[in-house]
Computed example of a mutant assay.
Amino acid sequence: MRRRTGLAIAGAAALAWGEWVNWRWSRALVSSSGGSSTAVVVLGYRNPQSTANLINRWRVRAGIRSITSDGAQKTCVIFSGGATSSGVTEARLMADYAKSVLAFNGTVLLEDQSTTTWENIMHVIPLLEDVDRIKIASQPAHALKARAYLRRQRPDLAERLVRADDYRPGEWMAVKPLLALYGLWTLRGVKAGERKVSLWTAL
């Protein structure tokens, strides 16, 4: 009985920790920047098949719902990701899913040259010059890594970063502890100061 209780407590603690870590990451390196135009950058994930995989489908949904979370009058979605083993780019697979399955009919731009997160940011920068707000949609750790890269490459544009709707309490809850552990590994090159929760989005 005690063992079961201990396992239950440990499991609950792991779930709570996964939620907390992902919540913090989703609110780091963002501000409360305002404006009438927003670009939502959806980062691709390696996709060997000819249709969007589970991870890319979720990222597309997170990107699309990030549009409706504010009152921007002009919004574009930028799908970013290079060629896959199927010959179709991640950007194209995500855009096709957004249009054919989610019936998204908004403005879509494709960045189809990048193969790393650093390149994702490098190649989308020209598409971000004229927007007031920038949202990066992915798993929270990956999105934070991308925001840190934008801060390093173009600190002036990084000032326009606002939070995407890529974290929701309870979503992917069972695997969030694993995502948190993987996130800690992927964020090992991101400085501690770049992981701090922004005051504007702490609540």
Rank of each mutant, 00 (worst) to 15 (best):
S50Y: 01
L54A: 15
G44A: 08
W23F: 15
Q73H: 07
A62G: 04
V30I: 14
R59L: 11
V101G: 13
N22I: 00
S86F: 00
T38R: 13
G63R: 03
T51V: 13
W23Q: 10
R92M: 11
L29W: 03
A91Q: 08
N53C: 03
T89C: 03
S36H: 11
R61H: 09
V30S: 14
A72V: 06
V41H: 04
N47K: 08
V42Y: 10
S66E: 09
T38E: 12
I55A: 11
V60S: 06
A28M: 05
L102R: 11
A28T: 11
A95V: 10
E90V: 00
T51S: 02
G63I: 00
R27L: 04
L93P: 02
K99W: 10
N56L: 12
M94Y: 07
G18K: 02
D96N: 14
G18A: 03
A83W: 01
E90I: 00
T107S: 15
G87I: 00
S66I: 06
V101A: 15
V41M: 08
E90K: 02
G87W: 01
A39K: 06
G71C: 12
R59I: 03
T51L: 01
S85P: 03
A62S: 07
S80W: 09
R46V: 15
F79K: 02
S26L: 03
A14C: 10
T89I: 00
